[in-house]
Design a binder for these strands. Structure first.
Lengths: 120, 120
DNA sequence: TACATTGCCTACCAATTGTTAGGTACTATA
DNA sequence: TATAGTACCTAACAATTGGTAGGCAATGTA
């Protein structure tokens, strides 16, 4: 997760795809390794940085920060900083973030049945 | 898309996540750049390699091959080879592949509304 | 004064994903 | 004989994504 080199072929391919296919567009936004898991935790209410960290197995602080930043950029979560010491920061889904709920649900259902199928 | 080094931390993180969260599991399977687009074309019926290629903007043959192989491995599509010259190969969704339909639909809807929101 | 707490940030490196540019096999047609 | 068509494959490389290990600031407590 660094920057995207806006001159690469990779980049223009993604743009072209996203232009034509909303589902490809969506997957560039929520396709990160941790993105959906973070969102699914946030579906049940706002959480602090440290709380999220505890809920996510093995995530490093760097990754969590990066993912949260990306989600914030994409208006999926909002970030509230309380000017206290030690600092407190709360993350919460925006309305378009909450709109992910059916997506996550379908994905969960499908994932579960696929898993059952292939482990049998 | 090469192999996955099964000793990496990346790898074990993905496993751990997939174990607990069906949605993370699902996204490792259908999270490729082209995966969903391919599936959404196949939702309307079987297609040949060359036909798929025409429908996907800018995809290289190598990428298409890799993605199709991955989908086949995951039992999402089936592959039928006709022993003709020149060769003919048809790809078709399996039943778990067709089960992706609602997922794709939700993703499309969400993608479309997110796009509208952010371009406004 | 030393240390803990919280939510980050930085530099660097490892792994994964995607692209470029070439090739193959086999047959049929020009 | 030269060329075209189909569905691939390979080596080498470029870009992106994820991980490791450290650091910082301000304040409260020991």
């Amino acid at each position: 997760m660094s920057e995207i080199k806006q001159t690469s072929t990779n980049f223009s391919n993604k743009i072209a795809l996203s232009d034509e296919c909303p589902e490809a567009y969506a997957s560039t936004i929520i396709g990160g390794q941790w993105t959906l898991v973070i969102c699914s935790w946030l579906l049940s209410g706002k959480l602090r940085f440290g709380e999220l960290k505890k809920k996510l197995p093995n995530i490093t602080e760097r990754m969590l920060t990066l993912q949260l930043r990306k989600l914030e950029e994409n208006k999926i979560i909002s970030r509230t900083v309380y000017a206290e010491v030690p600092p407190r920061v709360e993350y919460e889904l925006t309305s378009i973030g909450y709109a992910l709920k059916p997506v996550i649900k379908e994905l969960e259902d499908w994932g579960a049945s696929h898993k059952k199928l292939t482990s049998a």
